[in-house]
Design a protein around this nucleic acid. Structure first.
Length: 470
RNA sequence: GCGCCCUUCGUCUAUCGGUUAGGACUCAAGAUUUUCAAUCUUGCAAGAGGGGUUCGACUCCCCUAGGGCGCGCCA
């Protein structure tokens, strides 16, 4: 194991779809460890499956990682561009007798598997061409190159999260290295690329644990250094089943559009499977400082939107008013193209932020709760708010507006004025506060009314109150 | 079917043989309050089952059950 060198980590997704939650966490762990250890974080696009790889998916991966704030070092590697190198390694193995040509046809193999299944045997290649020399009838026939894997003994993967996992070699068959069209398989490509890129730590999902054994056999055949392996548990849906489309949002960009902050996402994903004592809120900077491979747990975690929400709410409250306002506006413009905000609206939002942000768990909710800020004139009055506007309360509003005209326009002055009004009218503050809130926001729940008055400004506020005054 | 992995409150987790099994989310109650939040306080809630090992097991071993992953000329 390359212990003395600077760690080289990589994230190697195949571009066949969006960047999903599980991939994002794998990328996060790799990134955190690289940043923690002063190592390198590389990105490799595994696009050897020409059928399923798309440029859109490549873009989605770039965008997803960028949104997550996971920056990679150097230019991304595209695996397909390296096929000749992969082939070269396969040829070397062939020359050294560590691989062999197999002329079995797909149909033949299919039949073999069917027979194995019928007999209740485990399904694996039976090595029919392992020690067979091709005869004249094989001349010009298509063949694949297979690894001549050891048949006795065992292959042991020393994994930093799973421990030492061992397979009896007779459980592992001779895998295909080169397809009949001369292109490399994933197993070969991964090993060759990791070696060429100097990858020292392979951190990925447990779904690759079995692959690690097979890849290790190739590495051993080539006499290459063995990377440190770490196979992290998968993320499941809230029902405990494998995360799939029926669980709804899988793409990280979907969470961006639901109004989650990348920092919150990082914190949440980090805690899914990794812990540091009782720490829950771990900002990225702290995470880089603390992250270690030893802290990764072994069991699968369920995705819990409520907790993500809670963490997101925390980071929103922590963010400075100006920064959050900027974030919110940018978000609003992205999800609602064409929506623009003039300087007055921007200023209003920033001013309202201190009492708006503790009331929202996502940017979407923030925008929704603050919608009364973005309109000019009378807000739409909802049903409950309408009930607060009776002939009697409308009368109060009309008279209050008169008094407010002369008040200083800041929260405490407005409050003092209103309290004085209530006292003179012989009513409780709450009696006037609710109709006032209804007139200003169209709702019965809102930030403190006096703050709303202050933020809206004298003109706008009085217009709304007068509109509801009888 | 075969191989490998996993199993502490509903969820994420702490515990690295000796704790009243801790924290967080959720939920409930209370405090605060012009509403709703935020905040604070309190509460509900867990070692899958069965065997061992040990003076003593959530922790170590075995079995069972449940769940997951893999078994392609996909990655």
């Amino acid at each position: 194991m390359a212990e003395n060198s600077v760690p080289v980590l990589r994230f190697a997704p195949s571009p066949t779809g969006y960047l999903h939650i599980g991939g994002a966490r794998t990328a996060l762990f790799n990134w955190l460890y690289a940043r923690h250890s002063g190592g390198t974080f590389l990105l490799r696009i595994e696009d050897t499956d020409r059928e399923r790889s798309t440029p859109e998916a490549v873009a989605a991966i770039f965008n997803g990682l960028s949104w997550m704030g996971l920056d990679w070092d150097g230019e991304p590697t595209f695996q397909f561009a390296r096929v000749s190198r992969h082939r070269e390694v396969a040829e070397q193995m062939l020359a050294k007798g560590q691989a062999y040509r197999c002329y079995a046809t797909p149909q033949e193999l299919e039949q073999m598997r069917a027979e194995q299944k019928a007999k209740g045997l485990s399904i694996r290649y039976d090595g029919r061409w392992r020690d067979r020399t091709p005869g004249p009838e094989q001349h010009n026939m298509p063949y694949v190159v297979r690894l001549k894997a050891p048949q006795t003994g065992e292959t042991i993967v020393h994994d930093v999260v799973q421990g030492s996992v061992r397979w009896a070699n007779d459980q592992l068959d001779d895998m295909v290295l080169l397809r009949s069209d001369g292109t490399p398989t994933y197993m070969l490509a991964v090993v060759v690329d990791d070696f060429d890129m100097g990858v020292t730590h392979v951190i990925r999902g447990v779904d690759h644990l079995n692959n690690a054994a097979r890849q290790l056999q190739i590495i051993q055949a080539m006499g290459w250094p063995v990377p440190v392996y770490g196979h992290v548990p998968l993320i499941h849906g809230s029902d405990g089943a494998k995360l799939s489309k029926r669980h709804g949002a899988l793409a990280v960009e979907a969470y961006r559009d639901m109004g989650y902050l990348p920092e919150a996402m990082r914190n949440y994903l980090l805690r899914l499977g990794w812990s540091h004592g009782d720490d829950e809120i771990i900002p990225t900077e702290k995470a880089i400082e603390l992250f270690d491979l030893a802290g990764i747990g072994r069991s699968a975690a369920r995705f819990d939107l409520k907790k993500l929400e809670s963490i997101n709410a925390h980071y929103m409250r922590e963010m400075s008013d100006g920064a959050l306002a900027g974030e919110t506006l940018a978000f609003a413009q992205r999800i609602g193209p064409g929506r623009s905000f003039d300087a007055i609206l921007r200023a209003r939002l920033a001013a309202a932020m201190p009492f708006l942000k503790p009331r929202a768990k996502t940017l979407v909710e923030l925008l929704e709760k603050g919608d009364f800020l973005f309109i000019s004139g009378t807000p739409a009055i909802d049903k409950a708010a309408a009930a607060a506007l009776t002939p009697e309360t409308r009368g109060w509003l009309r008279r209050l507006a008169l008094e407010l005209e002369g008040a200083d326009w800041n929260t405490s002055a407005i409050e003092a004025c209103t309290r004085g009004f209530a006292e003179r009218e012989g009513i409780k503050l709450g009696d006037i506060a609710q109709p006032l809130r209804a007139a200003l926001t169209g709702r019965t729940a809102s930030p403190p009314v006096f703050d709303v008055l202050a933020v809206l400004g004298r003109e706008e506020a009085l217009t709304r109150i007068r509109a509801q005054g009888d």
